[in-house]
């Protein structure tokens, strides 16, 4: 049994479908990538799994199972309780994802599993140390605006793993960071993921990052799944024309003249027609 099973999930916003028949699985100790351009529905998928869909979004079909437990059949309160212990989220923008009015330590302390008050600060500092934040004791007392973007993202990663979750969903966790910081943060995420054995769903638009961190990849477009395969196959031998086009449009620093091929409009039109006829 997989850790996370999304089964033919469909979501509508104001009657317009944003996810159509999406199925995917993520195993424990696995990093599964979800790749797509804007509007592909990849963030909506993450929110649906976390149970934080916007109010106007409606699940019309399908199931989400975590450790075999169907999340959609639970009451809202029960689901919130369960998921606060089992799932965690690493958001995209470290600036807006931390409450500017509360200290880092306070925001980290509240996700810890029940800890005696006296040990809480020590535990917070231990986690800040674990994500290699220097001067952890000082940072615990700092407010978010006093830290750099990379440090804030590290604090958020600490907060995600500190609740000892089974599944972590990371939504573009390094898009807002500098390249040199991005690599360190990615490595940190993978190390923590390997140490704790959690399943990680890595949502991104960046195939380059996917190629370096994911074991399996789901390519999405227009709310549909285009292709699902192990990472090396997606990168080296993609089967679907859209995946190939996406790779061709991605520039690379080690090869001149790459990344100047836009995705052919004919292909996009074909994808839209397929989606319209429910063929996907």
């Amino acid at each position: 049994m997989s850790l996370l099973e999304v089964d033919t999930l469909s979501i509508e916003v104001h009657g317009a479908p944003v996810l159509r028949n999406v199925s995917l699985t993520i195993n424990a100790a696995e990093i599964g990538g979800v790749v797509g351009e804007s509007g592909a529905g990849k963030s909506m998928l993450g929110k649906a799994i976390l149970g934080v869909l916007p109010r106007d979004a409606r699940i019309t079909h399908g199931a989400i199972r975590l450790d075999g437990q169907d999340l959609l059949s639970l009451s809202a309160r029960h689901r919130r309780k369960l998921q606060s212990r089992t799932t965690a989220f690493i958001p995209q923008d470290p600036l807006t994802a931390l409450n500017p009015c509360r200290t880092i330590g306070a925001q980290l302390a509240e996700v810890l599993p029940p800890t005696p008050r006296a040990h809480r600060l020590a535990e917070v500092i231990r986690w800040l140390d674990a994500v290699r934040i220097p001067s952890a004791a000082k940072v615990a007392k700092s407010f978010p605006h006093e830290l750099s973007g990379g440090m804030r993202q590290r604090a958020l990663i600490a907060a995600a793993f500190a609740s000892h979750p089974r599944l972590v969903i990371a939504d573009e966790p390094t898009t807002a960071l500098d390249a040199t910081v991005q690599k360190d943060v990615l490595r940190l995420i993978r190390e923590l993921q390997q140490d704790t054995g959690v399943g990680l769903m890595f949502v991104t638009h960046d195939l380059c990052v996917v190629a370096k961190i994911c074991q399996s990849v789901t390519v999405m477009h227009g709310g549909r799944i285009i292709e699902q395969a192990p990472c090396d196959q997606i990168i080296t031998a993609p089967r679907h024309a859209y995946t190939r086009a996406l790779l061709a449009a991605t520039p690379r620093h080690d090869e001149t003249g790459r990344g100047l091929e836009p995705i052919p409009p004919a292909l996009l039109e074909q994808l839209i027609t397929e989606a319209g006829t429910g063929n996907g």
Binding site: A179, T180, Q182, K183, D206, L207, C208, V209, A211, K212, I213, Q215, C231, D232, I235, T236, L247, T250, R252, H253, D254, E255
Partner: peptide
């Protein structure tokens, strides 16, 4: 060294 390229390399 920090820039990734779309090449499978765990």
């Amino acid at each position: 060294r920090s820039a990734p390229s779309p090449e499978y390399d765990p």
